[in-house]
Amino acid sequence: MTRLLVLATAAWLAGTGWAWAQNGTIRGRVDVELPSPAVGRHLDVAAHGTARVRPAPDRRRAVVYLERAPQAAFEERRPARARIDQRNETFVPHVLAITVGTTVDFPNNDTTYHNVFSLSRPKPFDLGRYAAGRSRAVTFDRPGIVRVFCDIHSHMSAFILVFAHRYFAVTDDQGRYRIDDVPPGTYVVRAWNEAVPSAGREAVVRAGEAVTLDFVLRPSSGPAPRDVQP
């Protein structure tokens, strides 16, 4: 009986916890040298009044991800749910990172109508106009960058990064990130931001260890985000 218990415990550890303990972590910080735009591009000549002051999205958020991941990571398909709010004529969060197959809810928590849409190739969609308190959802079934807009309010935009694997993280308001449970190996880790070119660095992950990898994203630090190729 004791032998059976030991064997069962060993099998469980091998399947879950032990495997996790054998993996490593990539963590660090992304500093984004975000340019201050000299001139805005949302001009409404036909309005009688000055534009209403509204909270601006945090454009310093970055997404850090493994450019290439273990093959097994692509076979994991966990149906997940995420959410982008519409508040004060702003998408919150401004940057969302998800895996393929995730369904994103777009609740309208504003006082006006919104019309969420995207023309991006991975997932073109148009949710139509819907009022406060209502929500509509979209399932993202192809990897890529999806730019989201409101058809009524031209100043509203958001980014959804859809990954084919789970090795990614969005930075917090201090620029910090952490990617856990990375199998040992050598990877190219890339940091992406909407306004400046992304940057890639190599990382060697060892079992049970954490690798610290900091990035500085500046206007000339690498190729443009859209040019990132697998």
Partner: peptide, 23 residues
């Protein structure tokens, strides 16, 4: 005209989000 101005900001050098700096 909408291109970045010469001055830039580091993320830790300002109180609010960078997006709040409206031209």
């Amino acid at each position: 005209l909408a291109q970045p101005a010469a001055g830039t900001r580091r993320s830790g050098e300002q109180d609010g989000p960078a997006g709040a700096v409206t031209p």
